[in-house]
Structure formats: C-alpha cells, structure tokens
Design a protein around this nucleic acid. Sequence first.
DNA 1: TACCAGGCACGCC
DNA 2: GGCGTGCATGGT
Length: 289
Amino acid sequence: MPLSSPPQPSESSPLILTGPIALEATLNSGQVFHWARLKDDSWSGVIGHMAARVSQRNGDLVVHSGDGAALSHYFALNHPLDEIYAAFPQDPMSQAALASCSGIRILRQPRWECVATFITSSMKQVAHIRAMSLDIRRRFGAEAAGAPTNAYPGFDRMARLGESDLRECGLGYRAGNLLKTARLLDAGGIDLEAIASLRTPALRASLQKLPGVGVKVANCILLFAYERLDAVPIDVWIHRILLQMRRGRTGSPAQLARYARSRLGPCAGYVQQYLFHHARTARRGSSPH
DNA sequence: TACCAGGCACGCC
DNA sequence: GGCGTGCATGGT
C-alpha cells in the first residue's frame, strides 16, 4: 500500500479514525491547554502549525479538518488501551478512576509547546494555564488558517521577546524562566528532538537543565511529549492520592516517587493521568464553582 | 480576608 | 538528599 496519499477529510466527508477515545476528557485532562469547543460540539485546535477540527462519534475520532495521519499520531490512537487497562492496579481508587476516565489518551504533543506550557504551569490552576497559553498564542503566534487560535510561537520567536511581553500575559515570575529556556534552545544549547533518543533518566536530566523545569515539570514533558508512559508527575493532587494509598504515611518526594513507580505499574503515567482527572472532576461535581 | 493552584531555584544543613 | 523560603497571579 502506498503511504504517499492517505485519505484526507473534507466537510462533506469527514475521516473516521477508530478509537476508542474519550475526546472531551482527553482535551480537558490537564495535558494540553488550548483546544476550544465549538457550537456543534466539535473541537478546534492547532498542532504545531496545523489547524485541526475533530469530534467524537460513538468511541471514534471524527476528523473534519487536519491531516489524518498526523492526528492519529497526536491522539495516540495506536496506544493499546486494553493492555494498558489490564496493567492498572487493582486498588479501589485506581479502578474507580479507570471506570470514570476510560478512553482518555496520553497525547503525543509537539515538544516545545509542551515544554513551554508546563514551565508556565507552576502554582497555577488548569484554567489559568489555559488563559496564559491562549494569550501567548494570540499575541505572538502565527495564524493557523481556519483555527480560532494561533500556533504557539516557536522558541526562536519567543527568544526575541522581552520579559515584560510575557509578564503581560499573566506569567508573573514564570516569564523569566520561559524566556531563558527559549533563548537557551534558540542558541542551540539543547536540541529537544535529538534528546528524544536518550533513555528516560538521561532525558529527564537533560530537560531539568532548562530554566523552570524541575522534576515535576520534567515528568509532565516526558509523559506528554516523549511518550514515556511510566513517567509520573507528582503534583498536589497526585501527592494527596499517594498519601491515601499509603494510609497517610508521608515520605520525602523521592520516596513517594519510588512508591508511585512500584505501585502504579508499567503504565504508571496513564494511571496517574486517570487518577488526576478523576480527582479533579469529582471535586467539581461536589462543590460547583 | 485567607487560602489554594499540574513548582522551581536557592541557600543551608 | 532533605527542608525552608521567596516568587506572581487569579479564583473562591
């Protein structure tokens, strides 16, 4: 089969990609921050410079616009969810998260976008991260034809901004770190593509050389942009959940990380994402705001 | 008003 | 390696 001309969608004949996928939960689970829901319940986003519009029909992904192969890759439709679910821990919290979050996929995001948005994430709620991301795109990103938001500005573009430009997007003290990282990458100090061949510990160490990237943000980047599905970001939500699993027994960050790695299994990153989304959505349900 | 959020860098021990 | 502190912003 020639791979040179895969089928492409049109408004009259959208492309159907076999799931299963839970599209809304995937896009709202705190791994990506710019997708917008349209009136017809489809979702519009920009991947790199490619505008895309997708929706969900039954469990499948409907591609209204955008390259089908690129979207299949981005949404990680080849992740074997049945095998991943079989590896979930049997404890009640993990199984409850699995039951309520089934179909969430860990995306394969463009590296720089993921690095940048998670540098801005520290001590910010998901809604704030989204607002900052959209403002940075609106002010400094290139237009993506057909999309309501712009592409995320490349590090070469961002490297030429001033810190005050980024502070105007609400970044606060995060602006300096993001700008330093953009300039470091622009100067060739680290190649985000080249380091993808490193094993996870060396890759994590390389990422932590970037200003504003500590162990938690590095694990987010490993999971969401380098497909290291065993990486476990431990934020305040996952920290609380791990303490519950340990029946309140505390520990140093390193001890909790070792516990998570051994307790959550080979796809610990997937388990972590389901626990995170389940905890956040349960909270919203019980105390609406 | 006080508290919290997908933390990090730094100094100190 | 572990712990304390300062750092900005916006929502509840």
